[in-house]
């Protein structure tokens, strides 16, 4: 595996720092060579910025990639949105020489230029490809006994022409990684449907966004799970903050804990929910913490 730099994005460090801490703890436990990607900015968010102005989107994204190129490390993302922005920008700039030249014109104002010498990875496809579920099962110390509603998130697998991670209707790779921790991935209707946050919908049209989320939460509730697991802090925020907003606006209370995969894996490495910041979510379900204690 190539050496990695950890790209944080915005929501992880600035809203859900538990995800950042859990990720770093897990990378160390898995003996992965990583460093912080110092001075990185917003990816920038694919929904709004990509559709606003492609030049701005590519220039800002490529600066983040260049910081990693300078260290000769691949970029590791822990967010589907960051992955979409950085991996797509990286590919487009590698493939299109004229485009690269026009972006380097802007980067020249800060004395930088895009080379195209590294790759952008998402923590889930990296774990699956470079380690695999079996190896992870061998490395964990305390299998977790939880029933999980897995949410892949759209941009991890779509558009499939670019992601090349197989089926977008019925993928299994992420489920396998869930089960590698000892947890059970419970099937539920509309599992592959969007959480409703992306494309700038959550930021500008909250009611519409929450209507989509409410649809997913109702399906998940019916499935009777202990928690929701994602691999995207924006989906994470939508599921966690969104439950609080739905309670306030629609009077529906779901109370389902939300974990990023690195937090689930952190539990399987023996860390406490507090060490992984799971208790810093808006939705804190005491029953869930009791379940975790019981499986000790």
């Amino acid at each position: 595996m190539k050496k990695l730099s950890l790209y944080l994005g915005c929501i992880t460090p600035n809203r859900y720092p538990g995800i950042e801490k859990a990720t770093k703890l897990c990378l160390d436990k898995l003996n992965i060579d990583w460093v912080d990607l110092k001075g990185a900015s917003c990816c920038p968010a694919p929904g709004v910025f990509r559709s606003f102005d492609k030049t701005t989107w590519l220039t800002l994204a490529s600066r983040n990639i260049i910081l990693s190129e300078e260290m000769e490390r691949d970029v590791l993302t822990i967010c589907n949105g960051c992955y979409a922005s950085l991996a797509d920008a990286n590919r487009e700039l590698k493939e299109d020489h004229t485009l690269k030249k026009s972006i380097n014109f802007h980067l020249d104002t800060i004395g930088k230029s895009f080379k195209g010498s590294v790759d952008v990875r998402h923590i889930i496809e990296l774990f699956y490809d470079e380690l695999g579920p079996q190896k992870i099962t061998k490395m964990i110390q305390r299998p977790v006994n939880l029933n999980v509603a897995l949410h892949y998130g759209c941009h991890l697998v779509k558009p499939s022409a670019e992601r090349k991670l197989g089926s977008t209707e019925n993928p299994t790779f992420f489920d396998e990684l869930i089960e590698a921790t000892g947890a059970k991935s419970i099937d539920y209707p509309d599992k592959m449907v969007c959480c409703g946050a992306g494309g700038g919908v959550r930021s500008a049209l909250l009611d519409q966004s929450l209507a989509m989320l409410n649809h997913k939460l109702a399906r998940i509730k019916e499935a009777g799970v202990d928690c929701i697991v994602n691999a995207c802090p924006f989906c994470h925020l939508q599921f966690d903050s969104g439950q609080a907003e739905i309670k306030e606006k629609l009077g529906i209370e779901y109370n389902i804990p939300v974990l990023h995969y690195s937090q689930l894996l952190g539990l399987a490495f023996g860390y406490s929910p507090q060490e992984l910041g799971i208790d810093l979510n808006l939705i804190t379900n005491n029953e869930f913490f009791e379940t975790l204690k019981k499986s000790d």
């Binding site: 759209c154 941009h155 779509k158 558009p159 969007c194 992306g198 494309g199 919908v201 049209l205 519409q208």
Partner: peptide, 10 residues
Amino acid sequence: WMCTTCYTCQ
């Protein structure tokens, strides 16, 4: 602006 860019249609 109501599209979440989920790419399902595509």
